[in-house]
Amino acid sequence: MAAADHAIPINNEIQMELPTLPPNQALEGLKDVVFGSAAGMAGKVIEYPFDTVKVRLQSQPDHLPLRYTGPLDCFRQSLQADGIRGLYRGISAPMAGAAIENSCLFFSYRLIQDIIKATWYPSSEQLPFSVLLLSGAVSGSITSLVLTPVELIKCQMQVPLEGSAVKAPGPLALIATVFRQDGIIGFWRGQMGTLIRETGGGAAWFGGYEGVSALFRKYSSSSTSDVTALPIHQQMLAGAAAGVSYNFLFFPADTIKSRMQTEDVTRLAVNGERQTFLGTGKALWKQQGLRALYRGCGITCARSAPSSAFIFTVYEGLRSYFS
């Protein structure tokens, strides 16, 4: 987009000024997509076995005794049943989802900041922290729309089927089943949970990273610049804090989403009817209270710290190298 100001005449009298965005938006957007995808896929390889355990803990039926006593027991049973391969079952969908999620997050986060800066802060080099939180929240809400279908298939592949003789369906078979049962809208089952998690989580993720990074810059004796690149170990610490913040604060929404998306696999439909977001939340609360809503949270935060640290470090490193 050209750097010159643009104006649209309205009724030949009033002119509406459009925000002037920085040049080379296409190139910067391409970098966000490519670097975000690479960082997301690398992080997914690290975290996926822990994510599988998390989903299996979250999706335990509320009308039966708990199958797993905790994360370590779930790891043990999963390894005994399928080996390490079973913990990576269904990784193809989340690998694609990680590429889509992170490219969309980084792209929309930067673009929203550019729009806000051009509209309300044209003379400011640094945006207020509240604006960064808002940018992260909007970025997460946008990302949730493309992420829900991917997570639906991922969650259904991660849940073990009853009986060892049952052959687990692949992603294409699950896609066909969802479309046959619920049509195209069925792929957005659990969207409310994803929207809450990603909107609040986006603010927490980017806010955590930006906040911790700002603290490092503030107390650094070597630099006082707000835009100076941090050392790798500080980037990783900021990324780890971002990952824990994202997962812990909005984990109940993720638990409800996972339960809704796997109810067909675990036969949780009530009287043949699908449960709503609120109904699923009430059922979980009756099962174990707050503990049920945070089932699997510990292992999720444990895996998100190194994964998120790796994602931000890879992204920032690629951006710095190709700047």
Rank of each mutant, 00 (worst) to 15 (best):
Y48F: 15
Y48D: 10
Y48E: 04
P49S: 04
P49F: 06
F50A: 15
D51M: 13
D51L: 12
T52V: 09
V53N: 09
V53R: 08
V53H: 06
V55R: 00
V55W: 03
L57D: 04
Q58W: 01
Q60I: 06
Q60Y: 04
Q60C: 06
Q60H: 02
P61G: 05
P61L: 09
H63T: 15
H63N: 15
H63E: 07
L64W: 01
L64N: 00
P65C: 10
R67K: 13
R67M: 11
Y68D: 02
Y68N: 02
T69M: 06
G70N: 11
G70P: 07
P71L: 00
P71A: 09
P71I: 03
L72C: 11
D73N: 12
C74K: 03
C74T: 13
C74F: 03
C74H: 11
C74I: 04
C74S: 15
R76K: 12
R76D: 10
R76I: 04
Q77A: 09
Q77S: 07
S78H: 11
L79I: 15
L79A: 11
L79D: 03
Q80S: 15
A81P: 04
D82G: 14
D82R: 15
D82H: 15
G83T: 10
G83E: 05
G83Q: 09
G83R: 09
I84G: 02
R85E: 09
R85H: 08
R85L: 08
R85D: 10
R85T: 11
G86W: 02
L87E: 01
L87T: 08
Y88T: 03
R89T: 10
G90T: 01
I91G: 02
I91D: 00
I91Q: 03
A93P: 05
A93Q: 13
A93R: 10
P94Q: 05
P94H: 03
P94L: 06
M95H: 05
M95R: 00
M95K: 01
M95Y: 06
M95Q: 09
A96Q: 10
A98D: 05
A98L: 07
A99F: 04
A99I: 05
I100M: 14
I100T: 11
E101K: 14
E101G: 10
E101N: 14
N102Q: 12
S103M: 07
C104P: 01
L105C: 14
F106Q: 14
F106K: 04
F107W: 14
S108M: 12
S108I: 10
Y109D: 09
Y109S: 12
Y109F: 15
R110G: 12
L111C: 01
L111F: 13
I112A: 13
I112F: 13
I112D: 02
Q113E: 13
D114P: 01
I115G: 10
K117D: 10
A118W: 05
A118D: 08
T119I: 08
Y121K: 01
Y121R: 04
P122L: 04
P122R: 05
P122E: 02
S124G: 00
S124W: 00
S124A: 13
S124Q: 12
S124C: 08
